Computed example of a mutant assay.
Amino acid sequence: MIRKTLSIFLAILFLQSCNIGTSGTWKNDTIENEKRDQIKALNDQFFKALMTNNVKEVKTLLSDKLLEKGGNEIDKLIGDIYTTYKADSYRILDEYNVENTTTNVGNTIPSGISKDNDYVINYLALNKDMYVSLLIPNGHQNELLITLIYGKYGDEWKINIFHVGQYSFSKKTAPDFHKLAQESYKKSYLIDAINYSSMAKKCLRPGDEIFKYQKENDINTLYDKLMAEANAKYTFPLTLENVNTKPVLYSIQPQMIIDQGYSPMVWYISKISVQDTTALKVENEKVKTEVNNLFAGINKDKKYVFYRISNEIPDGKKLVRHFGIIDKLKE
């Protein structure tokens, strides 16, 4: 996951650091056509340079203050995107033009207040004329959000804020996962609810402090509630006492499969050697029954449950061999 902020002077400064002024805001089709066309040309130029690792070209579009602030981090961010995330085109999530009566004023831009995916953009405007572009590269199920905030210097637009963050997994955003978590919880599917809620947390701030969903507090509150309930109900590592080989379950994590959506990954330790795959499969049949009994809904409303078996808990320091089993559920 790429999550890196490049901004000038801590782009989200609190209002005590700002001047007092007024502003007018225009969104999408209400923006003046000439201005919108100017920014589109710059966005096209920026995106092409970003996706071809043309650091020099990207830097021609950045403001002097961002170049000063970003330093070598700009080069690294561009390189990371180039090596991990290819795209030929992008779409615009939203764009905003804000005209301020003074500089160094806080701009707060709500996309709306009632829809699930409504959000607020908040940043320090270094220029009177500001332009926000929220770009999403095409062709990926797990989407990034590229936040570009331009300021107008004389007759020239320059990027003051450049941020890349995770926007979605399998085309689902944080509020989408939150809704799925709520639905699972209503069915008493606690593990599914936790996994959906944890996915919501992973893509909750695609624009870091610049971008905040209106439902962020609800998402955080539900996650905390679910975790507290799970910690009170289950203690990990958890020995499966009803299985004669006494395997030890130590984690259940969400696994997102492209075009398939969410499935749980159950991690457990077996006393049977991971090389003895025949015996592991026999044991796993008993493990599946116990897991389904312990964790209501884990085998419902999805296509698979994944099992990853090892002879010790991975510590991240050495390679631990494992054996994987896929439980393909009945549709």
Rank of each mutant, 00 (worst) to 15 (best):
V282K: 15
K286N: 04
L222N: 13
K233G: 06
F211T: 11
I272E: 05
Q214G: 00
T221H: 03
A230Q: 03
E216W: 05
V248R: 11
M265A: 12
I272D: 12
S263N: 11
A232M: 06
Q260S: 11
M256A: 05
I219E: 02
I272A: 08
K271D: 14
V266E: 03
A279H: 09
L240D: 07
N231Y: 14
Q275P: 00
V282R: 13
L240S: 09
N231L: 15
E290S: 13
W267G: 02
E229K: 15
K271C: 06
F211G: 01
Y213R: 00
V274F: 03
A228G: 05
Y268L: 14
M265R: 14
P264A: 03
E285P: 04
D276K: 12
P264D: 07
T277A: 02
T289P: 01
K288Q: 13
A228W: 01
T235L: 02
N220H: 08
E216K: 00
Y213T: 06
Q253D: 10
M256W: 14
V243A: 07
T245S: 14
P237C: 07
K212F: 01
E216R: 00
D218W: 05
V266I: 15
E229D: 11
K212N: 11
V243R: 01
P254Y: 09
Q214P: 00
